[in-house]
């Protein structure tokens, strides 16, 4: 089956270091450095990693909000990497985005009805006379009262605003929605409402999600597959159950063990791996394996050879010279 979304060896380098006027940039930030992914119709791919690992840059590349430096993006089998003009506009119907911050992603001067209708107005997929009806239908779909279409964003709570953002992303019946940290700005009790809604919508509409988050438990809950990113590269990728059950990459393992468990007995610091130091700068990443500076298993080979993503069974790959394989 053709995946609905496929990414092949995508790279994004940002120039950096030109502090003086007219001087050429001296370095490059390798924000995303050779990422390949695929996503099937109606499924969810979770992308996790710490800040600065390139997950938001990846989201922007997927939605063509920024251009990749190299590599290609295939949407339903069609290469969309170099589209422009009206072709690009047509492609945008099929891939939409939900942003992290429900406050800054909604125009405070537009009513929510106008906000949700904006994609319809731009793409002209629905006749003008039918737009109001479609807006009400969408509001109902995401659990908002359709009578409130002429209210403004400030009259809604954080959770309700995120519902507006979701309604807007659904307006054009996209095949893929990229959700960049859609619940991290919300309180716990509201997070679950939004995640339940996203799952319901997926079952109903068969839309595929790329779900980007730093919260591992949220991703485990919603994702079919998980990609763990570190400094612009995928270090482990596979079915959520497998990756969470038996992480093979030391970084995945440390990341999972660092999450505080909401249970004093079982959680308290058993087998906790506390990583030392911070994520190195992506301007000058470590040679060989990028994780080696914080890894407790690092050997000489880790500094000289970059590990490749290798099959570890159960449909999972990881990039490590000394993977944690099951005994």
């Amino acid at each position: 089956m053709t995946p609905i979304l496929e990414v092949r060896d995508v790279k994004k380098y940002f120039p950096s270091g030109s502090s003086r006027l007219l001087q050429r940039p001296t370095g490059q930030v390798k924000a995303v450095d050779g990422v390949s992914l695929s996503l099937q119709k109606g499924k969810t791919l979770g992308v996790v990693g710490e800040s600065g690992c390139g997950k938001s840059t990846l989201a922007r590349i997927l939605t063509r909000l920024i251009e990749p430096s190299s590599g290609s993006i295939l949407l339903d089998g069609e290469d969309v990497t170099r589209l422009s003009g009206s072709d690009l506009r047509r492609m945008r119907r099929d891939i939409q985005i939900i942003f992290q911050d429900p406050y800054s992603s909604l125009n405070p001067r537009h009513s929510v009805g106008e906000i949700i209708a904006t994609p319809l107005r731009i793409q002209k997929t629905v006749a003008k006379s039918e737009q109001a009806g479609r807006v009400k239908e969408l509001m109902h779909l995401v659990g908002l009262n359709p009578e409130h279409f002429n209210r403004y964003p400030h009259e809604f709570s954080g959770g309700q605003r995120q519902r507006v953002g979701i309604a807007r992303s659904l307006a054009l019946n996209p095949k893929v929605i990229v959700a960049d940290e859609p619940v991290s700005a919300l309180d716990v009790s509201i997070q679950s409402q939004i995640l339940n809604l996203m799952q319901e919508l997926q079952t109903k509409l068969q839309v595929a999600f790329v779900f980007i988050a730093h919260d591992l438990s949220v991703v485990r809950h919603i994702a079919d597959d998980v990609a763990v990113m570190y400094l612009g590269k995928i270090v482990e990728l596979g079915p959520a159950r497998t990756v969470y059950g038996h992480p093979t990459h030391p970084y995945t393992k440390a990341l999972m063990s660092a999450v505080p468990v909401a249970n004093p007995v079982s959680g308290r610091k058993i087998g906790r791996i506390v990583l030392t130091g911070d994520v190195p700068s992506p301007i000058d990443p470590p040679s060989g394996c990028r994780f080696r500076t914080r890894c407790w298993k690092a050997q000489d080979i880790c500094a000289s050879n970059e590990p490749e993503l290798l099959d570890r069974g159960d449909g999972r790959v990881s990039a490590c010279h000394f993977p944690e394989l099951e005994a």
Binding site: G159, V188, S217, I222
Partner: peptide
């Protein structure tokens, strides 16, 4: 109780419906 159940439903279930507290503060 609601908060704890919401948090724990993250930790335990896979793909089931999450427990949430209805309404907003």
């Amino acid at each position: 109780q609601g908060l704890l159940r919401a948090v724990r439903s993250f930790d335990q279930s896979t793909r089931g419906s999450l427990v949430s507290i209805s309404g907003t503060p």
